[in-house]
Design a binder for these strands. Structure first.
Lengths: 111, 111
DNA sequence: CACTTTCTTTAGGTGACACTAAAATAAGGT
DNA sequence: ACCTTATTTTAGTGTCACCTAAAGAAAGTG
């Protein structure tokens, strides 16, 4: 849980959600040092959220969906009695947002 | 999201998930100062995750499920393409845990 | 073997943040 | 008005973790 509380690590995870990338390719996408990204990858590794494939000097990372099972279980148990509720909340929030946007459109003059 | 990354705030939220409690009652459940809890409550308030009801000098807090809609939407968009996937992951993790527990039962002698 | 590439690790700086203690605010009772 | 209760807010402190920079490992190439 601590592993995913860091925004940068969530970005990294999303980046390697579908396709694997080498550590260098991941680091290139960010404006921080290679070492910093490597540290984040270590955290994700220790948390079991990514899997690594060695190929020569390169290490290819990809998100480990199976490893996220415990995390999902945690989110479910800690947060909501049912994930259906969560989905409903998400949908309602989206509807509310659309409604608020429409209201703003009517009230405010052109900026 | 930052609001719920703090373990203590998650505990507080769970505490007032179903029933409302006064700030004092909440603080009594923890070993930290009243002020510290009050600060956490402020964060939760600013994040729109709780609602407050004033009664005399007391303030009763309860989790605001509607206010968690945006959070749910965020989790959904950032994390998984579908919450069904998350539910499936949670279930599989639970099955795996049961299986591992059974394996340990067979392998290890009595402690 | 030297050299390069790729990545990890270590040491140190800095900022964020949870906590304590104490002062300030708010509401009620006497 | 004063005092008590309940809570918030402020000021200060310590810890933790992200970051940079540099050094250290691991694997391939000439």
């Amino acid at each position: 849980m601590k592993a995913i509380s860091e925004p940068r690590r969530r970005e990294i995870l999303r980046l390697i959600w579908d396709d694997e990338l080498s550590a260098g390719q991941i680091a290139d996408r960010f404006e921080v040092t290679f070492g910093a990204v490597s540290q984040h990858l270590k955290v994700l590794r220790d948390a079991g959220l990514v899997v690594v494939r060695k190929d020569g000097t390169k290490r290819y990372y990809v998100a480990d969906r199976a490893g996220m099972g415990p995390l999902a279980a945690y989110l479910e148990s800690m947060w909501l009695s049912s994930l259906d509720t969560l989905a409903a909340l998400a949908e309602q929030a989206q509807r509310d947002e659309v409604r608020r946007a429409a209201a703003r459109e009517l009230e405010e003059p052109e900026p």
